[in-house]
Nucleic acid binder design. Structure first.
Lengths: 252, 252
DNA sequence: TTTCTCTGTGCACGTTCTTGCATGTTCTGC
DNA sequence: GCAGAACATGCAAGAACGTGCACAGAGAAA
C-alpha cells in the first residue's frame, strides 16, 4: 500500500468520524503503529488533523457522524471483539454481515490486505468497507429501517437468496443457550434467517450484556452457532452451554 | 509494446483506480521497473499524475475524489445548489436520487419536516438520509462501485424497475446541450437510464465545471431535463440551449 | 546493402526513502 | 506515585529511486 493511499484513507476516516485511533489504523493497514504515528504526525503538520494521545482528531470542519455508527456504547469492548474475530478470516472467503454496532466494529477492523467478498444489508458496515480496495462489496438493498441501520423486506430477501457465504456475522439482539439467537423485529429476524440459511457457518460476537437475554423473534437455535466471540469476563457457566451445543468459543 | 501504449494504459489505470504501483505495472507490461519509473516520471511531468514513493496517484481533480463518500471539491457551491433545489420538493413526493457529491449535498439539505419517499443507490445519500424521521428510504442494492460510491448491476436495475418517482435527481458527470447527460461508466449509465425511465421529471444540479462537458456514456438527451439547477455565474449562452429544449433554469 | 544516428530499454551503481525495532521519555488512569 | 500505554528518536535493513552506460532495433543517409 502506498504511503499516499494510507494518508488519504486516514483523512477520509477523519472526515467521516472525526477521530482515529493509531492502533486500529495500524491493524487495518497491516503496518506497525510507529508508521501510523509517523503518518498522523505528517498529517497534523500539514494541518489535516490534530494529534492527540492515542490517535488524532479532525482539524476543523467536522460536521457530524454521518451514519448510525454512533453506537457509542461499549466501543472499546466491541473493538476488542472485532479484533479477535479477525482470526476467523482469510483471503478468498465470502461473508454475510448484517447490522448492529458490533458488526460495524468488525467491518472496521477488517485489514486492508484481505481479499474478501462481502454482502451486507447494513449501511454502517457498507460505509466501513467502502474504502477497502480488495473487498468486493454487495449492498443488499431494501426498505431501510432507521432504528437498525439496515435494509429489510422482500428485496433484501431476494438478494440474499442469490448469494451464499462461508461465514455469516450475525448481529445478535439476544443470545440464550436454550432460546437461541433472537431479534427485536420480525422483518429483521426474517433477513437474518435468510442469511443463516445460505451460510456455511455462523459467527456471533457479543458483549456480556447480550448473553442470556432473549428478544421476541427467533432467528436460529444455539446449535447453529459455529463461532462465539465473547469478552474475557463472560460468565463461564453460560459459555459452557453454548460449547456443549457445538460452538467454538473465542475470548477477546 | 509501444511506449505510447504503455502511457495510455497507465493513464487508464489511474483514471479507473486512482493509483498505480510501479512493480505491478512492470510485471503486467513485461518490462523492467526502471522503464515504468521512466514512464511515470514523464506522465507526472506532463501533469497526468503525481509521483509518489512506490508508484503514482492520479493528478489533482481525480485524486481528490476516488473514494465514494468524498466531497471535498466545491463544497460551498454544492451546498448552495442543494439549498436552491429544495424549492422543488414538497411533502408526499417520491424521489430517485443517484450518486455524486452534489446529490449527497442535496440529500443533506433536505429539511426534516418533509415527508418523502426516497430511493437511492448511493451510500452517501443513504447515510445523509438515515436520520430523517419522515423519509421513507429504500436502498437500491447491488454491486458496490468504490469510485462512485454507488450500487450498480442487475440487482440495482431490478429494484429500480419496481419503483416509480416524481422526480429523479440525476448526478451528472457531463452535461452538454447537444450530447445531453453523460456518464463515465457503462453500468452507472445504465442505472441512471433506468431511473430516468421510471421518473416523471429529471432534476440536474451542476457546478459550472460540468457544463458543456461530456463523458463517454449517454444517459439522456438534454430535452429530458425538467429542472436545471446552476450557479449564478453559469454562462448564459449555455443555459439558453437547455432552456430552448424545455428545461427550467434555477439559479443558486 | 551498409553505415550511422537516434530512441528505447535493461543493468549496475550509489543514493534516498520507508519501515520496523530498540531505546528512553512522556503521558494517562488508578 | 506507580504501572502501563503511547510516544519520539535513532538506527539498520530493505525497497524504491535516479543516473550513467551499454546494447538492440528502427529508420535515414550513404
Amino acid at each position: 500500500m502506498l504511503t499516499d493511499q494510507r494518508h488519504q484513507l486516514i483523512r477520509d476516516r477523519l472526515a467521516a468520524e472525526g477521530s482515529v485511533l493509531a492502533g486500529e489504523l495500524a491493524s487495518r493497514f497491516g503496518v506497525s503503529e510507529d508508521t501510523v504515528r509517523r503518518d498522523l504526525r505528517e498529517l497534523a503538520k500539514a494541518g489535516h488533523c490534530r494529534r492527540v494521545y492515542g490517535g488524532a482528531v479532525a482539524a476543523a470542519p467536522f460536521a457530524a457522524a454521518p451514519i448510525g455508527l454512533r453506537g457509542g456504547h461499549a466501543v472499546e469492548e466491541k473493538a476488542r471483539l472485532a479484533s479477535t474475530a479477525m482470526a476467523l478470516l482469510s483471503s478468498g472467503q465470502t461473508l454475510f454481515i448484517d447490522g448492529g454496532s458490533t458488526n460495524t466494529a468488525i467491518a472496521k477492523a477488517i485489514p486492508c490486505d484481505l481479499e474478501l467478498t462481502i454482502a451486507t444489508n447494513s449501511l454502517g458496515v457498507a460505509s466501513a468497507l467502502s474504502d477497502h480496495p480488495l473487498v468486493e462489496l454487495t449492498v443488499l438493498g431494501g426498505r431501510f429501517v432507521r432504528d437498525l441501520g439496515t435494509c429489510v423486506g422482500a428485496d433484501t430477501l431476494a438478494a440474499i437468496a442469490q448469494l451464499g457465504a462461508d461465514l455469516f456475522f450475525l448481529g445478535s439482539c439476544g443470545l440464550d443457550a436454550s432460546r437461541g439467537v433472537t431479534a427485536f423485529d420480525s422483518a429483521e429476524a426474517e433477513v437474518k434467517r435468510a442469511m443463516a440459511r445460505n451460510s456455511a457457518g455462523i459467527v456471533i460476537a457479543v458483549t456480556n450484556d447480550k448473553l442470556a437475554t432473549a428478544a421476541p423473534y427467533r432467528v436460529a437455535g444455539a446449535e447453529a452457532i459455529r463461532h462465539l466471540v465473547v469478552e474475557k469476563t463472560a460468565p463461564a457457566a453460560i459459555l459452557a452451554d453454548f460449547e456443549r451445543q457445538g460452538a467454538e468459543i473465542h475470548f477477546a
